[in-house]
């Protein structure tokens, strides 16, 4: 039996998309009333929930407070039912920690932290079914990207000033072609995989991560594909935000 053909001769991927096309994105803001900001996003079958508290006073050890800017605290936990196999992952495992750190890096670059010195912003994680959390409810590839996108919306919902949207997308490289927004099948095929978080207006890169071998000559193409996809994501998120603001203003009765 031959392996999966990730990109057919006609240029279609396994799920019917073309190389540069994104999966279907649906998002909602303000899904929890008690949090300062929250958002829910679906990118294909990958679903993520982000909740933001803050800025507020430093909780716990005061010594963590930074004199010139806010502390961004990110935590990540995946729901046990989110992957194909049910496995209990206690929070604080290596993968979650790493993801939390990556998110923190990403958002420290985007949030105007200097406006809130000595305070704390939580984009943070609770165990399963916790109310204040950022959870991947179902993972079908591009977990990091979905988290970033959800968190962006949640931070916006919380009204925390940011330099720009942070839009993230993954990209891979198959048979000389760069594929945008990898699904789980494509990720599992084992090719190089790149995650990019972009500030679309300035084109600055908030985070770039890749953990496979890819020749530097090809990096440029893959990077460009990921960046284009991130800009596409921005268009969609922008629409969601505008829709949300529009609805909110109607409710307020203006």
């Amino acid at each position: 039996m031959a392996g999966l053909e990730l990109l057919s001769d006609q240029g279609y991927r396994v799920d019917g998309r073309r190389a540069g096309e994104l999966r279907k994105i649906q998002a909602r803001m303000g899904v929890f009333a008690q949090a300062d900001g929250s958002a829910y996003i679906e990118q294909g079958n990958t679903k993520a929930l982000a909740v933001v508290y803050g800025p507020h006073e430093i909780r716990g050890s005061r010594s963590r407070a930074l004199p010139d800017r806010a502390l961004v605290n990110c935590q990540y936990s995946s729901a046990t039912f989110s992957t194909g196999e049910r496995k209990r992952r206690p929070h604080g495992d290596r993968k979650s920690c790493e993801m939390g750190l990556q998110l923190r890096q990403t958002f420290e670059a985007a949030i105007l932290t200097q406006l809130h010195p000595r305070s704390q912003i939580d984009i943070y994680v609770q165990p399963l079914r916790g109310v204040v959390s950022l959870q991947v409810l179902q993972a079908d590839g591009g977990t990091y990207a979905a988290c970033v996108n959800a968190a962006t919306l949640a931070v916006l919902d919380a009204g925390i000033p940011m330099r720009d949207f942070v839009c993230a997308c993954s990209a891979g490289f198959v048979d000389g072609t760069a594929l945008a927004d990898l699904s789980h099948v494509e990720e599992a095929a084992g090719g190089p995989q790149l995650a990019l978080a972009l500030l679309p207006a300035s084109g600055q890169i908030a985070l770039l991560e890749m953990d496979a071998r890819l020749h530097e000559d090809h990096l440029e193409w893959v990077l460009e594909a990921a960046a284009q996809a991130a800009r596409d994501v921005h268009t969609l998120l922008d629409r969601v935000v505008r829709q949300h603001v529009h609805e909110a203003s109607i409710l307020l009765g203006d």
Partner: peptide, 12 residues
Amino acid sequence: GVMKIVREHYLR
């Protein structure tokens, strides 16, 4: 019976 595979299938 353990694995549940959900795949998207886009129609164009």
